[in-house]
Design a protein around this nucleic acid. Structure first.
Length: 428
DNA sequence: TCTGGGGTCCTAGGACCC
DNA sequence: TCTGGGGTCCTAGGACCC
């Protein structure tokens, strides 16, 4: 495997094994001996599986209702997704990893890249094992580690680490025959090659990661855009995708949900849209940003044979704001614009975009929709919800019944974020 | 009855300008 | 017959990720 050879730096990828399922197991030891699956929002499909569940033939993305018989027959434990818990566990893993390198990128809730430069640890593989043990000890979460000269090769190595029977620490430098590893990886399993690009590749006879590495740069650029060309070069060991430390400010914030039951009435949709607006605005303030545009969309079920309708519209704010009230008014106007009666709606969402950092806003003297008292009120609003739970204080228009609420029939307690729900240890 | 939610980046094409 | 060339900005749609 060629490498840039320009320096002695490496990327190290840490991936939490079956992350959501592992989080559930940390606080419920009884689950450790049982196969376990975690469901998506609305208990729709399987989004995390322990290896035991995989061995029963269950797969990521399977609709829950189609697999219920297998699940019941084999006494598989089922949990609704509990993002508050997973987010908190992710933070614990991240703070543990910071002791190994200051150059850390949070790639997703369960994956982190580290960049090691001039590491005193000559034996990087051993170092990887040390990281696995430390994270397990400090957080209870099992992780795998991949070490390579580029991020894409880290992902290749991670694919290997996840194969049963393979080492959970993979260092490409130690592979006896790297080409053989690349030749066994189907091209669609390369990071950045999805189903559409994979089809293009296969039509051109490019079937494996090795084929992609060896294809002409011109072909990659013309058929897979610059992103495909980058993947090819990364497979060659030339780093094109840098570490992105810190968290770049978000460019948009979306809150959308499918409903537990289909709804037709404007009033119900309005309640849902207001609830999503409140959640989105809270995230906006957490991000210390303001939005200049609000978008609202509604749609019927695309899987069912019935009258379909889908629409989206937007409203601009005269001045960027993070005020739930101001944004909620605009969101309602959007909804009025796109709502059509007699359809059975299935999903709605709110998107905040054209975000600007709060401290960079040009104050308008004439058209202020957000006044300083509003800012104070939002602060109080957030503080109350922080103290008493995130839905304690809502907008009046959100309603009380919420017959559109999503299903979460298997939710675990908020072990790490609510005092009342702390796990209790018993002495024997 | 029942198929997630939240993001980013890239490109093509149209509008517009000089 | 023959209808510029080059640039920017915006948007929609496609593709990808976890």
């Amino acid at each position: 495997m060629s490498s840039t050879g320009s320096d002695d730096s490496y990327f190290l990828l840490v991936d939490c094994n079956s992350f959501y399922a592992s989080c559930e197991r940390v606080f419920q030891p009884a689950l450790r001996k049982r196969p376990l699956v975690v469901l998506s929002n609305n208990d729709g499909c399987l989004i995390a599986l322990t290896p035991e569940a995989r061995r029963l033939g269950l797969e990521l993305g399977d609709p829950y209702f189609k697999k219920q018989d297998v699940i019941e027959k084999n006494n598989v434990a089922v949990r609704s997704s509990n993002y508050t818990l997973y987010g908190d566990m992710s933070r614990r893993v991240r703070s543990t990893l910071k002791q190994f390198s200051p150059h850390l990128e949070t790639y997703s809730i369960d994956e982190m890249f580290l960049r090691l430069t001039g590491s005193p640890h000559r034996d990087l593989t051993q170092y990887g094992h040390h990281i696995v043990q430390t994270v397990k000890k400090c957080t209870g979460i099992p992780v795998s580690v991949a070490i390579a000269p580029t991020k894409t090769l880290c992902k290749v190595a991670m694919e290997r680490a996840k194969i049963e029977g393979q080492e959970d620490v993979q260092n490409t430098a130690n592979w006896k025959d790297p080409e053989a590893v690349l030749a066994t990886l189907p091209v669609e399993d390369v990071w950045g090659i999805g189903s559409a690009y994979a089809r293009t590749c296969r039509q051109a006879g490019i079937k494996t990661a090795l084929d992609l590495r060896n294809c002409s740069s011109r072909w990659a650029r013309n058929n897979l855009t610059v992103t495909g060309l980058r993947r090819k070069r990364e497979l060659q060991g030339i780093s094109c995708i840098p570490l992105e430390p810190g968290s770049a400010p978000k460019k948009r914030i979306t809150c959308s949900r499918m409903f537990g039951e289909k709804i037709t009435e404007f009033q119900d949709l309005r309640e849902a849209v207001l609830t999503y607006t409140r959640h989105a605005c809270k995230r906006l303030r957490d991000d210390e940003q303001c939005a200049a545009t609000v978008q609202v969309f509604i749609r019927t079920d695309r899987f069912v044979e019935e009258k379909k309708y889908s629409s989206i519209t937007l409203q601009g704010l005269s001045q960027p704001t993070d005020s739930t009230h101001v944004i909620a008014r605009k969101a309602c106007r959007c909804l009025e614009e796109i709502y059509r009666p007699h359809y059975r709606y299935h999903k709605a969402g709110v998107i905040l975009s054209e975000l600007v950092p709060r401290d960079k806003i040009q104050r308008s003297l004439t058209k202020a929709e957000t006044s300083p008292p509003d800012e104070k009120m939002m602060h109080v609003f957030d503080e109350i919800n922080k103290k008493f739970g995130k839905n304690s204080l809502q907008l009046l228009g959100e309603g009380l019944e919420k017959n559109w609420h999503m299903r979460r029939n298997h939710l675990s307690p908020a072990f790490t974020t609510r005092w009342q729900q702390l796990p209790i240890a018993h002495t024997v």
